[in-house]
Computed example of a mutant assay.
Amino acid sequence: MSGLIALLDDVAGIAKVAAASIDDVAGQAAKAGAKAAGAVIDDAAVTPKYVQGFEAKRELPIIGRIAWGSIKNKLLILLPIALLLSAFAPWLIAPLLMLGGSYLCFEGAEKVWHWLFPHEHTWDHAEHDEGDPAHLEEEKIAGAIKTDFILSAEIMTISLAAIPESGFWMEAATLAVVAVGITVAVYGSVALIVKADDVGLYMARNGRLGLTQALGRGIVSAMPGLMKLLTVVGTAAMIWVGGSIIVHGLHELGWHAPYDLIHHAAVAAAQAVPQAAGFVEWVVTAGLDGVVGLALGVLIIPIATRVIGPIWAAVFKGRA
């Protein structure tokens, strides 16, 4: 009997350790996922465009296939690469993080530039929007998964940098939780956004109560504004997070001036408003990080659009 009690006690101890480990993984995953907010919001803002032009019944299957492709991107390709970097080349994490941050700055700045200086798109709708719907769907899904790979690489790199020093399996578990959690959150949100107008239309047409019908009409009317708001928030988040990554990366690599300047300005502003010191310091820091991100993004635009973009298109077109 005493042996059985001792065994049960050991099992209970192991269970407590396992529970603590799960809590640690969940906590680290939450913190790491929060650091990747800019890329996450951008992912949610970008994806709905891939279901535009398709029948309503195809929207959720398309989103589901893109989400599955995103999971495979993160778990089968990016997770092993991240773990190898952490184990054998941790010095590469900061430069790669800054590369991803530069991409965020470019994406955000390009959207701002197009808002300020709109121009006609050269995309050939006749070539892409007509023809076999099944083939078009496959093309859209493939394009979405390629875009997701870039955003997922940013998310995983940012998350890896945010994880405190820990063992191999803790890092692996944390990154896996981040990968699955963010994918579910992003594409679950996208599914809700994409189908919200259909739900609103159904309520407006079939609701038994006037309040239900009015709520449905309100949802339908609000969706265009919500999509615009999501785009604005996503763009602002990209620029802010991208700028923050660059500033912190430069600080880690030895150039402290941008980080110190922003930090001192934020602290001075917080001291001027002691009643909301923490909030003011965060706003000033985020705002100045955003200024850095926007400036860098504007500088990158001509390089990316006139040099890197054509080379990238030529390479992948040749492989198609």
Rank of each mutant, 00 (worst) to 15 (best):
V40C: 15
G234F: 07
R208I: 08
S21G: 06
V315K: 07
F106G: 01
I63Y: 02
T285H: 11
A214H: 11
A265G: 00
G242H: 04
S86H: 14
C105H: 04
R65E: 08
L288E: 01
E110K: 09
S221I: 15
L85P: 15
G290K: 01
A109Y: 05
L175F: 06
F316L: 15
A204H: 15
F279E: 13
I22Q: 06
A272G: 10
V40K: 08
R319K: 08
A30D: 11
G64Y: 03
Y259W: 07
A313G: 02
G225T: 09
W255R: 05
V194L: 09
L261I: 15
W282Q: 02
H114G: 04
A265I: 05
D10Q: 10
E107V: 10
A172V: 02
A276G: 06
I5S: 13
N73G: 00
A109H: 11
L253H: 10
L250A: 04
C105S: 07
M223Y: 10
W240S: 09
A153Y: 06
S102A: 14
G309L: 01
T174R: 09
D23N: 08
A265M: 14
V184S: 06
L299V: 03
I182E: 15
V25R: 03
V177G: 03
A176W: 12
A185H: 08
G207W: 13
V280E: 00
G218L: 13
Q52Y: 15
H264P: 00
I301W: 07
S70H: 00
L226I: 07
S244V: 05
I81N: 01
G100V: 01
G207V: 07
H248P: 05
W255Q: 10
D23M: 01
D129W: 10
P90T: 14
R319N: 07
S159C: 04
G290R: 00
E127A: 10
L79H: 01
Y202H: 13
M238G: 06
L151D: 00
H135K: 14
V283M: 14
I155D: 03
G249W: 03
S70G: 10
I245T: 09
V190A: 12
A286I: 00
G249T: 13
L201M: 12
A82F: 02
L92F: 08
T157N: 06
A313D: 11
D10W: 02
E59S: 03
D289F: 01
V178P: 08
I219S: 08
A204F: 07
L8C: 05
G297N: 02
G108D: 13
G38C: 09
E171H: 14
L211K: 11
L99S: 05
Q52I: 08
A277H: 03
G27V: 11
D9P: 06
